[in-house]
Nucleic acid binder design. Sequence first.
DNA 1: CTGAAAGCGCTTACAG
DNA 2: CTGAAAGCGCTTACAG
Lengths: 345, 345
Amino acid sequence: MARSTGHSRPVIKDVAKLAGVSAPTVSRYLNGTVKVSEEKRARIAKAIEELGYEPSVVARALSNREMDTVVVFAANPEAFSTSETNHGVERAARACRFLMNIVSLDESDMDSVEARVRMGLSVRPAGAIVYQYDRAGIKALDYLPKDLPLVVVGGGFGDADRQIVNAEREAGRWMTMHLLDMGHETVFHVTRPKGPTDNTRTDGWHDALKERGAVIHEPIVVSRDLEEAVEAGRRLGERDDVTAVFAGDDETAIAVIRGLKEQERQVPDDVSVVGFDDRNFASMWSPALTSYGQNYLEMGQRAFRMLYEQVKAKRDGVEPPDPRVEVVEGQPALRASETVYVPWR
Amino acid sequence: MARSTGHSRPVIKDVAKLAGVSAPTVSRYLNGTVKVSEEKRARIAKAIEELGYEPSVVARALSNREMDTVVVFAANPEAFSTSETNHGVERAARACRFLMNIVSLDESDMDSVEARVRMGLSVRPAGAIVYQYDRAGIKALDYLPKDLPLVVVGGGFGDADRQIVNAEREAGRWMTMHLLDMGHETVFHVTRPKGPTDNTRTDGWHDALKERGAVIHEPIVVSRDLEEAVEAGRRLGERDDVTAVFAGDDETAIAVIRGLKEQERQVPDDVSVVGFDDRNFASMWSPALTSYGQNYLEMGQRAFRMLYEQVKAKRDGVEPPDPRVEVVEGQPALRASETVYVPWR
DNA sequence: CTGAAAGCGCTTACAG
DNA sequence: CTGAAAGCGCTTACAG
C-alpha cells in the first residue's frame, strides 16, 4: 500500500464504486449486521484491499453516537499503580480495536474535575474506567452519565456496581500479621496519604494491630518526596520501642531504611522493615526488601474486559451481565528485610 | 447543571432555537471565526449556559476533518522513559484542551506496526508524536501521512525535521569520562539492548573510551529481567580488571551491584558503579547511586507544544514555524557509588 | 453580520 | 440480499 498522502484517503463511496455496489452494502459487509452475498463480499474485500481503505471512526461515531474508545480518568499519573493500570487497559483495549484516552485528574484542583470529565466525554466514548485510588476519582463518578458503561478500578469493595479491586486491606493486614507473628510487639506505619476508601493497606495494618490488641501508634504520613520518609526513618530510629515498620510502598520503605541506618539501626537485625508493591528494585535491595505485590497490569486488563462486556451487550441490545466486583489477588514476597524479634534486652 | 442522562444531550440546534438565531450563528460564536453581534452573543451565551451545551467533538471533527487529539505511538509501555514522557504529553495537551490517545507498538511484532498506526490515525488526530526510543517507533514513521503534524521524541539527532531529543550520547560520554577521570583505566558497560540510533548512552560510553584510548570491552547486554544483570555483576566480580561499571539504567546498576557483592566485591571500594535515569530510588541506595537524570516529563511537554505550533499554523492557514530539533538537557547526580581508583596493587 | 443549503463519511430504517 | 433516502451534529462557502 502506498504511503498515504492524507488528502486522498479513500472513503466508503470509493470502495462501493470500485466494487460495483452501494455504500450501504459496503457498510453491511464491514459491520456484519446483515448478510451480503458471497460474490459481493469478495468484490468488496478486493476493493478495500486495493484502496487501502480504513473506515473513518469519526463518521462512524457520529452515526453510532459513540466511538470505539474507552476513556480513563485517573489522578496521580506519576504513581506506579496508575501507569501500570493504564498499561493493562491499553493492552486489553487494543485487542478489541478500542482506543484509549487518558484524562488526568488533578487532586489538588478538585474544581477542575467536572471540566476534565466533560472533556473526556466529549469524544462520546463507549465507556469509562475510573481509578478510585484517590478522591478525584471518586468525584469524577458524579459527572458520568448513568447510562454510560463504567468500571471502577480500586477503591472500596462495592463502591460501584462493576469494579475491579485488589484486596489491599487484606494485604496490609497480612503484612502486619506477618511481622506480629515474628514476635514484634507492634508495627509502626509510614505511608503516603491513605486513599479515601476503607480498603487500603493502612486500614489492614490497623485491623491486624487491633485484632492482636497491639499498641497502635499514629501512622507517619509522608509525601512523594523521599526525604520525608528518610526523616521519618531517623525519628523512628531514635526510639527503642521501634522494632518493626510497615511502609506503605517500596520507595518509602527504602527511604525509611536509610533514615534508620543513619541512626545506627540495622535492618533487619535491629528493625524489620517491609514495603508494598514489590517493585522491581525491591529484590535487589540490601537487604532484599520484603514486600507485597499487586497486579495492577492485570487489574487494568480486567477492567477493560469488564467494560467491554457492557459495551457489547448495549450494542447488541441484550441485557448486560450482572454487576459484579472482581478481586485481583496480590502476593507477598518474603525476603530479607524482616526477621524474628527476640526480646532479650 | 443537572447530571446528564446521555439521552438528551442538547445539540447546536437546541441552542440556536432557544437563542432565536440560526445554528451557523451559534457555530460562529463558538469558534470566533466571524463576528457575531453583541446582542446575539449574549443570548447565545445564555442559552448555552441554560442548556449545559457542550459541542460534539465528533461532529466537529467530521466537518473539520480532524479531532483535537494527539496520538502517541510508543513501544515499551513499561519503560520508565515511556510513561514519564506520556505523562508530560498529557499534561501539555490538557492545557490546550487536546485529548491524548496512546497506541502501543509492539517491538516483538513489527508486522503489527502498520495496523497499529492505521488504528491510531483512524480518529483523524490533529497530529502525532512518535517515541523513537526503539525500532518500532522508527518504523511507525513510514506509515504516517506526510502532511500530518509530527514530532519525534528521542532517537538520533536530526532523525526527523521536528524533534525533541535528550543529549543521551553526551550523557553516556560524560559518565564514562567521569569514571576515567577518577583514574579507572577502563569502564565496563552493562545495558539493556541499545536503541536503534547513534544517540544512545552506549554510543557515548564508546566515544569516551575511544577518545581516551582505553580498552573497549564488549558491552554486556541484559534484558529487563534483573536476574540477568545480577549474573552480569557476578561475572564481572570474578575479574580483577573490573574497577568501574557504567550501567545503562539504575535498575540494572543495582542488580549489578548485587552480583558484585555476591563475589565479595565492595562498591565503591573495589568497584565503582554508576547508573542512568536517576530514578527515585537511586539516592536511597546504599551506597547512594551516582546516576544521570533525564527530563522525560519535560520532553513530553515540549513535544506536545512543538506539535501544537504546527497544528495551530495549519489551522490558521499560515506557515508553520521552521523545523527544529530541541535538546532537553539532563544532569549528572554524583553520589557515593563511585570513587577514585588507586592502582596500588 | 446572518440565514439557507450543502457537505463531512458513515449507518439505519424503509422499501423492494 | 440490496439500493435510495434520511440523518448523526457540526462547519463552511454562498448569498444577502
